[in-house]
């Protein structure tokens, strides 16, 4: 019989919540010490619900739960203090970050370091003066690192030479960057050395670098998403011309 996973006041965020029956919700949460957990939260919706905390994504919460198996029962929840009210223009990026975790992390697999990155990225999204693409690129790199698919940004995977800013590389998903002297036959994205070094240093001030970094991250993430596209990306941009 699996152990009873009783947990008390675990710090975390809601990634996604779905209505369940009349007054309950099914929550997917990301906690600092427990990783991704699925909870059923009873009696939290409707006019008679009495929650002191806002049960929503991007709100720091303390969750208590009990139960065996995949779906636990939330026994209590309270606000962890602090407010992460994402501006309207940033919410979709938050959804995207949440979807990546839902798609790439297994349940009950703690990733405390990724949690720190997640929290820092949310914090950065709050500030509308910071370009959100740069925040997302950094978060994607950290996520890949944490999952064990980290980028190789030090040297040419074939020659072992350090990366040169003015060389052109073909990024092999398993091996890493391979110098590509002539611009022919590239099975994988062609990325400049300058961009690879900038990704390493989290320096996204140059729009050209941001563009290339996006192509590379999109390619690398797709390797782990089993060809099922991310909904937050697709649906939101599907009809920008409405």
């Amino acid at each position: 019989m699996p152990a009873d996973h009783r947990q008390h006041l675990q710090y975390g965020f809601i990634l996604h919540s779905r209505p369940y029956r009349d007054t309950s919700s099914l929550l997917e949460i990301f906690t600092r010490d427990g990783g991704r957990v699925s909870l059923v939260a009873r009696g939290v919706r409707g006019s008679r619900a009495r929650n002191s905390a806002r049960l929503e994504a991007f709100v720091p919460l303390l969750f208590s739960w009990a139960g065996r198996g995949e779906l636990r029962t939330m026994t209590a929840v309270e606000s962890a203090g602090g407010v992460f009210t994402l501006p309207g223009s940033r919410i979709i990026s938050g959804f995207y970050m949440n979807e990546l975790i839902l798609r790439l992390l297994h349940r009950d697999d703690p990733h405390p370091e990724l949690f720190v990155c997640y929290e820092r990225a949310l914090q950065a999204l709050l500030d509308e003066s910071r370009p959100q693409e740069a925040v997302l690129r950094r978060y994607e790199r950290e996520l890949l690192d944490e999952l064990g698919y980290g980028l190789q940004l030090m040297e040419d995977a074939h020659s072992g030479e350090p990366l040169h800013a003015d060389s052109q590389y073909c990024y092999h998903p398993e091996q890493g960057p391979i110098q590509q002297p002539d611009r022919q036959q590239a099975d994988y994205p062609l990325i400049s050395g300058r961009t690879l070094l900038a990704i390493r240093d989290n320096d996204y001030r140059d729009p050209q670098i941001l563009r290339e970094a996006k192509i590379l991250m999109r390619f690398l993430l797709s390797q782990h998403l089993d060809n099922r596209p991310l909904k937050s990306r697709e649906l939101y941009w599907q009809s920008r011309d409405l």
């Binding site: 959804f95 649906l235 939101y236 009809s239």
Partner: peptide, 8 residues
Amino acid sequence: PLDGIGPL
């Protein structure tokens, strides 16, 4: 978006 509900 996570529930598949888009602008249309």
